[in-house]
Nucleic acid binder design. Structure first.
Length: 863
RNA sequence: GCGAGAAUGGCGGAACUGGUAGACGCGCCGGACUUAGGAUCCGGUGGGGCAACCCAUGGGGGUUCGAGUCCCCCUUCUCGCACCA
């Protein structure tokens, strides 16, 4: 070997690490612990693409550095392996999803291992394996015992295309977030988890977390706490009209201070009172409206909501408790049955939605605040802001802040209302009508009772079925496993639960299983959890800002309440990596060409009609290689649909894993969205080749003898040490690479002294571990550098004999002085004023002010 | 509509508490060595100008000796939420 040859170096060191158990983590260490975690991947059929290793590399760099800084590091990896895509593949290929999943995991593992991550492979977990999911079932039983899991007939998001229900969080704009399939509303009996019981704690505990502000905000909004009041309205008894009177309903409002401005009430179409209070005259219209609302999908409702409000008068009236006024009761789908009480009082003067409804149906708009804007026209727009109360009886003259507590006190006194806190967060719909998930440890006896399986009877293994489809009568696929389905419970015949858990279940606690992955008695032992505590650094995509992170926090708190974990939060510090985008190339016909099949011909422009925008002409100098076919370039998410995925192994084959790792970091800040450009690897590869040549003579393959140290080298080295060290804390991985490149540029082929060389190789090692190990070995060390002490930064190495002083006149740079470090302020000012370039600008002017920033800059103010 | 974030060369990006804007790299241009090179090395590279200099961090104001950085207004883009009473 002479040239830098990662294909030879990398497998050798990967082998070494495995053989020597270099990264195996143990619990009996006297060292402080550090738990670094990347979100584990879902093993898809297309393998890892170049976007995945970004977070793994960042975590690996932290893990390797922390190890060298004396920490006992846990850096595990595993697979989130239950879920819909494997089930669909199983249907397509007519194979068992377990077989498909294991095969995919094997490829993922190969890919990951070739990138040289210091993972604790001995702790690998896979959520679909029975020795893992038996403990997911066990934890479910804990939830059940605590009354946090229950069966309920609830309106659910039914996705006909997937043949299953979905959680609220999985539905956006009336579509399933994963596939875009439309979702409709249905009422079904489902397993629910009472996450709402933890709403306040989930909200409060966000405050202590070192998480990105954006993620905290998204969680706060999702939990959606609001404070207000519940107020009871009595329905006017009016038997003569055919209505079944003498009833009441409760509305929820955050503005009880506007009660005097309520000019009607609205019930959600699903509200149970609707059918009871509707008068004969209105019955037909109301029933038609309720039916059409029920049949609308979420998507249709939302689309319709953008246009205008709809609703029907029930014919009934309610009494406003504050003034005894009779106001009409309407039905409208802008009131949601799932939020608050499913009923509202409408205050059109101070609420925009109510205002729109009033305008549509010609209802009274009655202001109850005198507002700052004297010209405000309440007929034209609502005023949701501050003011001084009017038309509110003895409350007149109060501000909003004064009015609220006063009216709540009054309502409570009168027994017609009370203070109330509400959350947008709803209970978590936890069952799916699928095969490839954890079976519930639940049986149903013939008397209709539900029973948890005894913990010692776990696991409830997934049975084999002949087909992964619902049964003819619409039961989930598990109902096909007749032998499995029929069981007994304490001697009675019973049927097993045929729903399975959603994919989130396994990922709710995997970070705990990593602490003790082979435990056969418990999900994890108390001693292990006491040692590892919780995750110190968690890196993953923002797409999990709400779903996974909220669910995992919920489970963690339940486990905390069970006394099973010592911490109330699972992830102390969270960081999001930005998505890696890639250029896609499309010809006018719309066909996509893979990036490696196109080329840029500078100066050779073509024009054609864009396939993206039929009215746009695009200019391009990109062509399909070997043809005259022009293609337009556009940035997009990496994937099959744009034909722009890059397999990391392709990069490893061409440049080596060390180049891939560094390029992933060098592209830009970790959290930023960045475009992948394979050509960028050239620069990094050149850098690593230069490092190689710096120490290895390419002709003889001999390690070159060390040189002597120099001021310039030491300065460059310690700048790099500082940057790499600080980078770990701040999770900035791009600038350290630049500083290491500068160091090599400073060396200019002169071999540094041993001390400098070794320090450099050590700080390089988290980024390019294979090359660093190879050089370390060539420097004469027997053992791996993985636990060598991290180099310390020496600030004195940065101090020069001279300093560079910028001289400005009126804030504009005019000269740069190179002057002795010991020079006094006066000496510097004299030298500055004597500089010819400076003199030209101060000549004939008076110096009004002389500003001197020590060691940096002089600014002369001359007029 | 509401909330959060961003805007710097042809491109990715640097710039500590306000103090030399464009580090480092890609690409491009020129050169060396080469049978050849997706190899290596050297030099150049924000725009304008022969030069002295001038202009430049999305746009417009302001604070300051000095603003990419701080304040106000505007534009554009990305992300999240979206009848939550």
């Amino acid at each position: 070997m002479s040239r830098y040859n990662p294909a030879e170096i990398e497998p050798r060191w990967q082998h070494y690490w495995t053989e020597h158990g270099t990264f195996v983590a143990t619990e009996d260490s006297s060292k402080p612990k550090y738990y670094a975690l990347c979100m584990f991947p879902y093993p898809s059929g297309s393998g890892l693409h170049v976007g995945h290793p970004e977070s793994y590399t960042a975590i690996d760099i932290v893990a390797r550095t922390k190890r060298m800084q004396g920490f006992n590091v846990l850096n595990p990896i595993g697979f989130d392996s239950f879920g819909l895509p494997a089930e669909r593949a199983a249907q397509r290929e007519n194979r068992h999803p377990a077989a498909i999943t294991r095969e995919r995991i094997a490829y993922f593992r190969t890919q990951l291992q070739r990138l040289g991550f210091s993972f604790n492979w001995e702790r690998e977990v896979s959520t679909c394996e029975v020795d893992y999911y038996r403990w997911t079932q066990w934890i479910f039983l804990q939830l059940y015992e605590r009354g946090l899991a229950y069966l309920a007939e609830v309106p659910v998001n039914w996705c006909p295309a997937q043949g299953t229900v979905l959680a609220n969080e999985e539905v956006v704009d009336g579509r399933y977030v994963e596939t875009g399939d439309p979702v409709e509303r249905r009422s079904m009996k489902q397993w629910m988890l009472k996450i709402t019981a933890y709403a306040q704690r989930l909200l409060d505990d966000l405050d202590g977390l070192d998480w990105p502000e954006g993620v905290l905000e998204m969680q706060r909004q999702w939990i959606g706490r609001s404070e207000g009041a519940e107020v009871r309205f009595d329905v006017v008894a009016d038997g003569a009209d055919g209505a079944d009177g003498d009833r009441s309903f409760v509305v929820y409002t955050t503005r009880p201070d506007t009660l005097f401005g309520a000019t009607w009430c609205v019930l959600a179409p699903e509200h149970p009172l609707v059918s009871k209070i509707t008068t004969k005259a209105q019955r037909e219209a109301v029933e038609a409206y309720v039916a059409s609302a029920r049949n609308k999908s979420d998507l249709e409702r939302q689309v319709a909501a953008d246009k205008e409000k709809t609703g029907v008068f029930t014919g009934a009236t309610a009494i406003n408790p504050v003034n005894g006024e009779k106001i009409p009761i309407w039905v409208s789908d802008y009131v949601l049955i799932t939020y608050g009480t499913g009923a509202i009082m409408a205050v059109p003067a101070h609420d925009e939605r109510d205002h729109a409804f009033a305008r549509k149906f010609g209802l009274e708009i009655r202001p109850v605040y005198r507002v700052e804007d004297q010209d405000h026209d309440f007929q034209q727009a609502a005023w949701p802001g501050q003011g001084i109360a009017v038309n509110s009886g003895r409350f007149d003259g109060l501000s909003v802040a004064q009015f609220k507590p006063a009216i709540i006190a009054w309502l409570e006194e009168q027994g017609v209302g009370k203070k109330q806190v509400n959350y947008k967060l709803r209970d978590w719909l936890f069952s799916r009508q699928r095969y490839w998930g954890e079976p519930f440890p639940i049986v149903h006896t013939q008397d209709g009772q539900v029973h948890p399986v005894d913990p010692e009877d776990l696991p409830i293994g997934l049975p084999h079925v002949d087909e992964y489809r619902p049964t003819a009568d619409g039961e989930p696929p598990l109902a096909r496993a007749t032998d499995w389905l029929h069981t007994t419970w304490h001697g009675q015949p019973a049927l097993r639960e045929t729903n399975t858990m959603p994919q989130w279940a396994g990922s709710c606690w995997y970070y705990l299983r990593y602490m003790d992955p082979h435990n056969t008695d418990l999900p994890f032992s108390p001693e292990r959890v006491r040692y590892w505590q919780s995750v110190d650094l968690y890196i993953g995509g923002v797409e999990h800002a709400v779903l996974h992170l909220l669910y995992a926090r919920f489970w963690h708190k339940v486990l905390f309440d069970c006394g099973l974990v010592p911490t109330s939060e699972p992830f102390k510090r969270l960081y999001n990596q930005g998505m890696i985008l890639a250029f896609a190339y499309r010809e006018s016909s719309g066909k996509y060409h893979a990036p490696q099949t196109v080329e840029r011909r500078a100066g050779q422009l073509s024009e054609f009609v864009s396939a993206w925008a039929p009215n746009d002409w695009v200019q391009t100098d990109w062509y399909v290689k070997g043809t005259q076919i022009p293609v337009e370039q556009k940035l997009g998410k990496m994937g099959k649909s744009l034909n722009n995925s890059v397999d990391p192994l392709e990069i490893v084959d061409r440049y080596g894993a060390d180049t891939l790792r560094i390029y992933e970091m060098f592209m830009g800040p970790l959290e930023q969205v960045k475009p992948w450009q394979t050509s960028g690897c050239d620069g990094v590869h050149r850098f690593l080749s230069r490092v190689w040549r710096l120490f290895v003579d390419e002709d003889s393959d001999q390690t070159r003898p060390f040189g002597t140290t120099s001021k310039a080298m030491r300065k460059a080295l310690h700048l790099a040490i500082k940057e790499t060290t600080d980078g770990i804390d701040q999770l900035k991985f791009n600038t350290p690479v630049a500083k290491m490149m500068e160091l090599v540029n400073v060396a200019k082929g002169q071999v540094p002294a041993r001390q400098d060389a070794e320090a450099f190789v050590l700080i390089l090692s988290p980024y390019a571990p294979h090359l660093a190990e190879e050089l370390w070995h060539r420097f004469g060390h027997e053992a791996s550098l993985a636990t060598e002490p991290w180099p310390t930064f020496d600030p004195t190495a940065l101090v020069d004999e001279t300093m560079t002083i910028v001289v400005q006149v009126m804030g504009k740079k005019r000269a740069v002085l190179e002057i002795d470090r010991a020079a006094s302020k006066d000496q510097i000012l004299t030298a500055a004023k004597a500089d010819p370039a400076v003199m030209r600008f101060i000549e004939g002017k008076t110096i009004r002010k002389e500003i001197y920033v020590p060691g940096k800059l002089v600014n002369l103010v001359a007029t």
